[in-house]
Design a binder for these strands. Structure first.
Lengths: 349, 349
DNA sequence: TCCCAGGCTGACAACGTTGTCAGATCTTCG
DNA sequence: CGAAGATCTGACAACGTTGTCAGCCTGGGA
């Protein structure tokens, strides 16, 4: 135990008023080390031709002052290379985009690059403003999950040396690298399997056809049904935004006179609602979903998903972007990430 | 069907060589508009005292050249205000951190600020390097979910005007704003409820006590058990990293001669494994988890979680940070986000 | 001895922008 | 009519860094 002596119990290492000291610059370091600013720059950047003992003096000064190179000034002067890329997604908190962000961050980190993330919130105007802002910050490249339909405004930026790679959805009005999921093929394969299992009436549940992925998946599903002569647009339900709506739509369809024996949910929010309703009713309708997700295997109803690897999607796009940043000027590429049919959910009863 | 005519099937709107034009600067705009650079600056920044017709000319030149102000140069010259904050988390793809990132991005957007995100991957050395890098990029402030135990190295940065707010875990060796979950209180309340329900043997499942949140939750649980005279350290299992391990540990405990009648899983990865095993065995042991998660209500086993609002945690921290950025120099604050007991999972059978 | 190459260093300008200041013009008021 | 202000504009320096270049040494070869 230490006896607190009045006023002296604690060494006052904390200056009570946070003294907003100015950041030291190379000028300060140079003065302390007795060299020129340029020499400091050379030492800080590991440039050759500095006498070891001079370098030591400089490093000592750097340490004493707590100098950190100003990255802004550095990249302003040296032209490009802010070692930053911009990622534009719909919404960070959404697990799909979070996975994308994680994979992109990983690739970025492999290239000693930082990640500036912006959320468009599905708003094309906001998307445009954010992309412009990212360019104004001189990012070395852009990764974009498009919200809008028209990206012509990016053309001049791309021509001026900020490469852009689009992922999950195609760019509009701009020749650019694109990395997409095989939405159409995956939906086709899944629905064909339902047909082969003997299903003749397949309810299709989707959000808006204003969304590219929905259009593609719907097209794939229709193709597969049409190929078997089973196309029936009365079984398609649009505008499903959340699990609750999905559940009630599934209920409505099951209550009709000649109900579907199978459902195709075009995204995982819809799958979730469908699982809930089918489980509640003890139904034995087949369920096919698009998009896998973390806990799908623990849900209380067996279903098949058209799965794909979101990380591969994102890594592929990011790696392509870095090739562009490093100077690859070849023609824009369109890459397709394959899908796979996977069984999920817990067996019935 | 389109007959491909040799070499002419497509209008060549794509300049084969993407001509890396230089970005126009205020100098270019000034020359085109026939004014000084400073006047361009004034127009671009909506400064007063520019004749409307001159402003028009400048804006026309801006539009014609596709000029965008260089944000780097701007914030270099004008001192601070990069309109960027840094967020350091463990791993972006993890839903917990994704939720944090989303909420932070939201608050940042309300302040017209962009978000630079970095992942420490639980590595203190990497954390330190990333935080330094963020400072070098002159961010206006830092939000940190600490990985390491010592953040004294940040002291000089904070004193030099980069405020930092820590969340979810406390900072080490640095007086700083901190926003934490009420881990201890939540665990205490949950376990007390188990005791009140008549449970006398509670298995406690956790990851490493090297993790702050684990220590706190464990302490809360022990307190509650001790208060009822039920403390029994033989029922505590450490080092559980993933659902699979959790499941097997639960199995082991249930196979012992005098098995627990209740389990407390200290995070949601562990809860998940416990749910799986309890469901598989058709057990009727009570389960208490810490951390709510999206699909918890659909899991096939009833359990109670100590829940909290991650978004509130993150928003609180972000708002505090922006108050600091705006100049609030009051003493560092410690805020506690409350928890709540919530029933989850589907009823047995 | 001189010359030249290579190692080492610093002065200076420049990156693109904005703060400061001074000057020019115009209005207003005593 | 003159002074005081308000409005408008541009020259210049500065933010912190790095590219360019010139110059200083030292040592080795002719």
């Amino acid at each position: 135990m230490i006896h607190p002596s009045p006023g002296g119990g604690k060494v006052s290492q904390v200056t009570s008023a946070p003294s907003r000291t100015k950041r030291p610059t190379m000028v300060d370091v140079a003065a302390l080390a007795g060299v020129s600013v340029k020499t400091v720059s050379r030492v800080v950047n590991n440039a050759p031709y500095v006498q070891p003992e001079v370098a030591q003096r400089v490093l000592a000064a750097v340490a004493e002052l707590g100098f950190r190179r100003n990255h802004l000034a550095s990249s302003l002067r040296s032209g490009q290379a802010t070692a930053t890329i911009g990622l534009l997604i719909e919404e960070i908190a959404n697990p799909f985009y979070a996975t994308i962000a994680g994979a992109v961050a990983e690739v970025a980190s492999e290239h000693d690059t930082m990640l500036l993330i912006a959320s468009s919130e599905e708003n094309p105007a906001r998307e445009q403003q954010l992309l412009r802002d990212l360019c104004a910050r001189q990012v070395d490249g852009l990764l974009v999950v498009p919200a809008g339909e028209d990206h012509a405004f990016l053309r001049s930026e791309v021509e001026r040396g900020t490469p852009a790679v689009f992922l999950d959805r195609p760019a509009g009005g701009l020749p650019a690298d694109t990395v997409l999921i095989d939405n159409r093929g995956g939906a086709h394969a899944g629905v064909r399997q339902l047909v082969e299992l003997g299903h003749r009436r397949v309810g299709i549940l989707l959000d808006s056809t204003a969304i590219y992925t929905m259009r593609e998946r719907l097209a794939g599903a229709r193709d597969a049904l049409a190929a078997a002569g089973l196309a029936d647009d009365r079984l398609i339900r649009y505008g499903i935004r959340d699990p609750e709506t999905a559940a009630s739509v599934v209920g409505d369809l099951l209550d009709e006179p000649d109900p579907p024996t199978a459902f195709f949910a075009l995204n995982n929010r819809i799958s979730l609602g469908a699982v809930e309703e089918l489980h509640r009713r003890g139904s034995d309708a087949a369920l096919l979903g698009f998009d896998d997700f973390d806990l799908s295997r623990l849900l209380p109803y067996p279903f098949t998903v058209v799965a794909y690897d979101t990380r591969t999607l994102a890594r592929t796009a990011a790696e392509l972007l870095f090739r562009r940043i490093k100077g690859d000027r070849s023609a824009p590429r369109d890459l397709l990430i394959p899908t796979e049919l996977v069984n999920r959910g817990l067996p019935r009863h």
